[in-house]
Computed example of a mutant assay.
Amino acid sequence: MSRSPSEPASPGLDPGRPVLAVEGLHITVAGGRTEAVRDVSFTVRAGEAVGVVGESGSGKTLTCRSLLGVLPPGCAVSAGSARLDGAELTSLSPRAWEELRAVRLGAVFQDPASYLNPSLTVGRQLAEPLRVRLGLSRTEAHARAVELFGSVGLHRPAEVYHRYPHELSGGMLQRVLIAVAVACEPRLLVADEATTALDTVVQAEVLDLLARLRDDLGLALLLVTHDLAVVAEVTDRVMVFYAGEIVEDGPTAEVVSRPAHPYTAALLSVASAGDWHRRELAVIPGRPPEAGAEPPGCRFADRCAFAEDRCRTARIPLATGADGRRVRCVRAAELAETLADPFRPAAVGPASAGPVSLDSAPVESTPIEEVSA
């Protein structure tokens, strides 16, 4: 990057200061008739990488899209606050969002080709925001774009500058999109399934790139993924979403080795694809409750092998333990040793487990994150 090693990652940056602070966030879908995300609160600090995991429809992508101001039609933030460096995001006008994106807030998505204009060279698409946002001249923007392409690991960056998206591979396009996202050195980078469509080698290279940019720029990174291996490799902290709520939040190493919520343990049980000693494919039976359903008690109870009557009687708070980890489970303390056992069961109920209630029929079609007009 253009900054010398002796320069601070960002002027006036306090490494321990929250870059993003979300408090009590609620998001509705279907024109406000259904609440899909409920009471979500978390912070992301400068230089910190936070993972967001959960099944499709858990609300993780809706949460992150609300932070980017790109919620699908029919979806809206109904309550709560989200602040970037103290500036409220939930009440921004469209013009204010345009001024914020790419300068203080960057994003990388799963399919980079769909976010690049096929009729323009990738160099022009990178140089344009440099001219508009930073006021660089045409010559300066060209030189800076070539430098950025080189910094994200693209070989022969001067040649890549003149290529069109269809002339580049998926891995190269993802690097181009990352270069665009960090061109103006934003404070927060949101990566939503940024490595899902890439092969294993390219995925590892992109993850290494994100880690390096985080160190070089002091970026706060919010990484949304289904892949727990990616979370374990890249993030400092992980939040586990289920049915529109955070059910566990803590340091990644601790959550992966000692899950405190049965749902987290179940995710880890079904994610160990590299365990060749397994004779059966582990699954989490049943389905999450339908968006908007309000089952009493724990939303995971009907899929959980450890559920008791008290788990179904009242709403379960997201409690903070003595170690600072947050977990939404009334049995967290007594299940600690059981869930930490590497040979633990999948922590889920019987395979015949159905939906949470008759009022929340199984969702067979579009997950919450893909709601659109």
Rank of each mutant, 00 (worst) to 15 (best):
P5Y: 09
E7A: 08
P8I: 15
S10R: 15
P11G: 14
P18C: 09
V19W: 13
V19R: 10
T34S: 15
A36W: 06
S56C: 09
S58W: 15
S58G: 12
L62K: 13
L67A: 10
V77Y: 13
S78R: 09
D85T: 14
T90Y: 00
S91W: 06
P94R: 03
R95H: 14
W97Q: 03
R104S: 04
V108H: 01
V122N: 06
V122T: 14
L134I: 04
T139E: 10
V146D: 04
L148M: 10
S151M: 04
R156P: 01
R156K: 11
H162Q: 06
R163E: 12
S169N: 02
G170A: 09
G171N: 12
D192V: 08
A194G: 08
T196Y: 14
Q203S: 08
G218S: 07
A229E: 06
V230Y: 05
V230T: 10
T252V: 10
R258Y: 02
R258A: 06
A266W: 13
L268K: 02
A282W: 13
V283E: 02
V283R: 11
G286T: 01
G286I: 04
E294M: 12
E294F: 03
R299G: 02
C304P: 03
F306Y: 07
D309H: 02
T313K: 01
A319N: 04
A322M: 10
V330Q: 13
L335F: 10
P342K: 05
A346Y: 06
L358E: 07
V363L: 12
E369M: 06
V371W: 10
